[in-house]
Every structure is written in structure tokens, then in C-alpha cells.
């Protein structure tokens, strides 16, 4: 019964999310809108690369950078998306209090709303990858695709991001005007420190220690090893994680994701408790 209720909450929240994301325009314009931003973001990197290499794209590092940037879309959108659900419902639609006191699990509702964002981002990631493979010669599938590694790390990573997003959402309960900055800041830190578009070996030595504590670092490496094992072994300067076997890599991902899971749940529970005690659940700041 409880599971049925949760599934219904999830389904309806996802449907509501879809309507809120997409009903402002016609499907064609929405589809265009959804893919133009990620493609443009990726093309910035492509042109940065082209201007230095005079047009050479069929290299292992180009593929490394391109695939990392494509999958980073999940990091940015999921972290921001989960938080935005709480901000949007509270500040703009002023419906958070009704949702909060409804006989449903609040986090299931938030995950349902976020699921549709993940689905939309997934399409952006797929189109970006297809563009990379067919137009720019990105070496996805070079040496075959390690499907178990890819699928396992993708699922692990997305779950980790959702729970981290929930923690950020908890902080949104307590802040009126900072959620955008906090989210972009956290996502930005991952972008710089997690080997998304360049190997962490280029960072100062003491910063690499921080990189090794972040689950996104292992996630990015595992995703790339799953999708393009040959290209990954060709990165001449190393990725900083080349010493780990696939099994060790997944183990490190599991361990760091679990640590962040515990931390995120604790942050959300604490923020939720404080927000209830201080009456901030239905707080609006006209922002």
C-alpha cells in the first residue's frame, strides 16, 4: 500500500513537473530550447580546443573533455533542479505548504518532480554525444563499451546526485536568496575539481587531495572508462586515477557516494527540522 502511494506520488509529481517545464510553449520550441543550451555549452569547449590544436579533434583528450562535459550536464541540472522544485513551489507558486502537509512522502514528491528534469537532461546528453561521435569524431565505443561498468556507474552517480540535490534543497528551506548561488557554487566546484574537462593532475597537488574525496571525480572516470576504454588508456599525461582498476574505481565511487549520502540525508533532516521549528516551510521573500 505504502509503495503504491509512493509510486502514485512519484508519477503525479513527474507529470506536474513535465507540465511546468514544458507547457509554456509548443513541443518543437521546447525541444529546441532544451538542446540549444547544452550544445552551445559544449561547443564553447570545442572551439577552445580547436583554436589551440588548429582543428584536430580525433584525439583521446578531446574525447575525454567532450564526454566529461556532456555528463556534467547531469551534475548541474540535477543539483539545481531538485533545489529549484522547493524554491519554485515556495516562492513562486506558494504551494509548498499544501504539498508539505499532504499525506505523501515529501522527498518522493521532490524526486518525482526532478525525474522529469533528469529525463530532459538525458535527451540533451544523448544529442550532445551523438553530435560528438558523428560530427566531431569523439571516440565513444573505441575498444567497445563496457556496458556493466557504464550502467552501474551511471545509476550510482544519478542516485548520488539526487540525494545531494535533496540536501541542497534542505538548505533552501533555510535560505531565501542564496539557493542559486550555493547550487552553482557546489556544481562549479565539481566542475573544477572533479576532472570533468581536464585531468585532475593539472591541479595544484594539494587540490588533488580534495578532488580524490569527491564522488563526482570517480563517477566521471568510471563513465568514461565504460564508454571509451581505449581512449582513456591513451591519455598521455594520465588522468590521476589510472592506477585504479575498474573494480577499485567502482568501490571508490560506492564509498564516496555512501559518505555523501549519509551527509546529505543528515543535512536534509536537520534543515527540515529547523525549518519546521522556525516556521520557514511556507516562508516567502518575494524573490
Amino acid at each position: 500500500m505504502a509503495v503504491t502511494n509512493d509510486l502514485r506520488t512519484f508519477k503525479n509529481a513527474a507529470w506536474l513537473g513535465w507540465q511546468m517545464e514544458a507547457n509554456w510553449t509548443d513541443p518543437f520550441l521546447f525541444a529546441t530550447y532544451s538542446i540549444v543550451r547544452p550544445i552551445a555549452g559544449t561547443l564553447i569547449l570545442v572551439f577552445m580546443y580547436l583554436v589551440i590544436t588548429n582543428g584536430e579533434t580525433e584525439t583521446a583528450f578531446f574525447s575525454y573533455m567532450y564526454v566529461g562535459n556532456a555528463f556534467y550536464m547531469f551534475v548541474a541540472e540535477v543539483l539545481f533542479g531538485v533545489t529549484w522544485v522547493i524554491h519554485d513551489d515556495r516562492e513562486h507558486f506558494m504551494t509548498l505548504k499544501q504539498v508539505y502537509i499532504a499525506p505523501i512522502k515529501f522527498y518522493v514528491y521532490v524526486f518525482g518532480r526532478s525525474a522529469i528534469k533528469i529525463a530532459i537532461v538525458s535527451i540533451g546528453v544523448l544529442i550532445t554525444l551523438a553530435f560528438g561521435v558523428f560530427v566531431l569524431g569523439v571516440q565513444v565505443g573505441s575498444g567497445g563499451v563496457d556496458v556493466p561498468l557504464f550502467v552501474l556507474s551511471l545509476l550510482l552517480g544519478l542516485s548520488m546526485l539526487l540525494v545531494m540535490g535533496l540536501a541542497m534543497g534542505g538548505l533552501t528551506f533555510l535560505t531565501a536568496k542564496h539557493e542559486g548561488g550555493i547550487n552553482e557554487g557546489v556544481a562549479g566546484v565539481f566542475y573544477v575539481l572533479s576532472g570533468v574537462i581536464f585531468p585532475i593532475t593539472v591541479l595544484p597537488h594539494w587540490v588533488q587531495g580534495i578532488s580524490m574525496a569527491l564522488p563526482v571525480t570517480y563517477w566521471m572516470e568510471a563513465i568514461r572508462r565504460g564508454l571509451m576504454p581505449d581512449a582513456m588508456s591513451e591519455i598521455a599525461k594520465g588522468t590521476g586515477l589510472e592506477g585504479l582498476s575498474n573494480l577499485e574505481l567502482v568501490g571508490a565511487l560506492l564509498l564516496s557516494a555512501f559518505a555523501f549520502l549519509v551527509l546529505s540525508v543528515a543535512v536534509f533532516k536537520y534543515a527540515d527540522k529547523v525549518a519546521r521549528r522556525k516556521g520557514k516551510i511556507d516562508w516567502t521573500s518575494a524573490y
Binding site: I52, H178, G180, G181, G185, G188, V192, F198, V202
Partner: peptide, 20 residues
């Protein structure tokens, strides 16, 4: 945030140029 956030992107792009 308005000063620090652009710096994160700048840092990422600066490091990629450095790497290349």
C-alpha cells in the same frame, strides 16, 4: 557569489588551456 562563481568557470577553462 557574483565574484566567486565566474571564477570557478574561469578556473576550469584556464586549467584546460594550461593542460593543452
Amino acid at each position: 557569489f557574483e565574484v566567486a562563481l565566474p571564477l570557478l568557470t574561469v578556473a576550469a577553462y584556464a586549467y584546460i588551456y594550461k593542460f593543452m
